[in-house]
């Protein structure tokens, strides 16, 4: 068993060595998924206004995506508050009124909160929740199947603990913020604990790198 694991690790190392030899070196950017970012295909969720939200709504924009639930009182609001702060700084830095040259679309950022608690997080609840942090934030929900049409592609796990009393159950969920590029590719993951400075730095570096590749 140990031999097998060693063999597998060895093979993995060999493959990554080959890849490194064949391609231009990938810069050491924390959280960057490159050279093979995962392409996101059609998905089908409902936004906080009750409208369909799918692939078309992420194309052409940089999306920072966080998965959580509104009854989460600690990790989720901490992350949302940091995202609100980061968003404000990124938007004002990237779209200064006097300098709108270049491709404006590539500067555009959207912050998406995806609820993994479809039972309690109704459209109305999501609307009040996300707009509390920033009026431009997007809150996605829908049925379990709808939510999983996105979570399965991004590869996040979540676990609803129904052993608790019906009203106050907890949900385990990914703590990371996922970064989708305007071509709907999963290009990066920002790991917790989150801080505004780190989010801005990592996002800016990943974006600059990805833009330079295409």
């Amino acid at each position: 068993m140990i031999t097998l694991a060693l063999l597998a690790a060895g093979a993995g190392f060999y493959i990554s060595l080959k890849q490194a030899q064949q391609q231009a070196p990938t810069p050491d950017i924390e959280g960057l998924f490159w050279p093979s970012p995962k392409q996101i295909y059609a998905f089908n969720t409902i936004d906080q206004h009750g409208k369909t939200f799918g692939l078309e709504q992420i194309r052409g924009l940089w999306s920072l995506v966080f998965f959580g639930y509104t009854h989460c009182p600690d990790i989720c609001p901490i992350t949302m508050a940091v995202l609100a702060d980061s968003y404000q700084q990124l938007v004002s830095a990237e779209n200064p009124a006097e300098n709108l040259g270049g491709n404006r679309a590539e500067n555009n950022i959207q912050i998406i909160f995806v609820s993994v608690d479809p039972e309690r997080d109704t459209t109305a609840t999501l609307a009040r929740y996300v707009s509390y942090f920033n009026k431009n934030f997007i809150g996605l929900g829908g049925t379990v199947d709808m939510i999983e049409s996105l979570t399965k592609q991004i590869g996040i796990a979540y676990y609803i603990d129904k052993k608790k009393t019906a009203d106050n159950y907890l949900v385990d969920h990914s703590a990371s913020i996922f970064l989708l590029d305007p071509k709907a590719r999963l290009v990066g993951k920002l790991s917790a604990p989150h801080a505004t400075k780190n989010i801005i730095e990592q996002f800016t570096r990943i974006k600059k790198f990805v833009n330079a590749q295409d």
Binding site: I75, A157, Y159, L170, H173, S174, A175, A192, P193
Partner: peptide, 12 residues
């Protein structure tokens, strides 16, 4: 409660 992040999973 205690918040924990273990292997990227946030839990309380």
């Amino acid at each position: 409660h205690l918040s924990k992040i273990v292997a990227d999973l946030a839990r309380m």
